[in-house]
Amino acid sequence: MRYWVAGCLALLTAMSQLAGQAGAQTTSTLDTVKARGQLQCGVNTGLAGFSAPDDAGTWKGLDVDVCRAISAAIFKDTSKIKFVPLTAKERFTALQSGEIDVLSRNTTWTMSRDTAAGLSFAGINYYDGQGFMVKKSLDVVSAKELSGASICVQTGTTTELNLADYFRSNKIEYDPVVFEKLPEVLAAYNAGRCDAFTTDVSQLYSIRLTLGNAADHIVLPEIISKEPLGPVVRQGDAQWGNIVRWTLNAMINAEELAVTQANVDQMKNSKNPEIRRLLGLEGEYGKAVGLDADWAYQILKLVGNYGESFDRNVGAGSPLGIARGQNALWKDGGLQYAPPIR
């Protein structure tokens, strides 16, 4: 018996040492990715506009474009990616265990996630938040007008708490109609059991398309919670974090400078120093993150700027038709603001 225990203990010690060694490995993620010849990118198993295979099976979406942009910056090619579809529960384990290099899966940036568990957020590619959808026939244009309205909401979620907070702080009476599961909430709203329906805005837009006539429903402009979604990397590899962060920043800066997929080649002749720095014609910004000088040019040429990616995946150019809103550039009254490349 005693030998058994000793044996088990020895085995455990050996395993923990092995794990410790694995954690202490200091090879850079960039080198690993280059040696492998492939970026391993964790995405959602399927979320409209963010990551979903199209009819031909090609992954498309706003989150997918982040992966493609990173691949473009490293390999000058958007196809050298292994997409790993992950469920919400698997995502952090997959990143920690090295199964993926970057997690681009509509993950909300919160303090607990950023500080614990060895994760590090690299930016925000979509500002989501809780909103309301109502029937157009109600003639309501603002959530503040929902006084006395019955509102369908999923119970046991932060959605329900946010709803209560918002109406209490605005001193509006309302009548919550709660359900256990999202499809039930949806069915109730569709059957007319409540006047409004609340969940994250990005979901409201996709749900709208599954209702009888999408044009009969509108999403109200009020956003009552903060859900900043962005790509996540493993903590401890500053260079890799920089690559992901500046990939996103380059796409946002390019939109601000009006550099698009179509005009990026002409822009190479631009006299604007900001554009020249972005496209790698001046300075050594590529080298600073361990990439070639034309890293951002490749991103823009192969994927496009942030506005283009937004438009074709979730915005006006897609069936979802999500308004830019908070995701507009800071110049246009939104929150998308990238530090300058200089």
């Binding site: 198993t45 399927g46 979320l47 409209a48 990551s51 295979p53 009819d55 599954t210 897609s318």
Partner: peptide, 20 residues
């Protein structure tokens, strides 16, 4: 995260906005 027949049908239903 392995997509069998039902999984891939479900994925198409729930995530391809083109077909909503």
């Amino acid at each position: 995260g392995v997509f069998d027949l039902l999984g891939i049908v479900q994925q198409g239903i729930s995530s391809d906005a083109k077909w909503f």
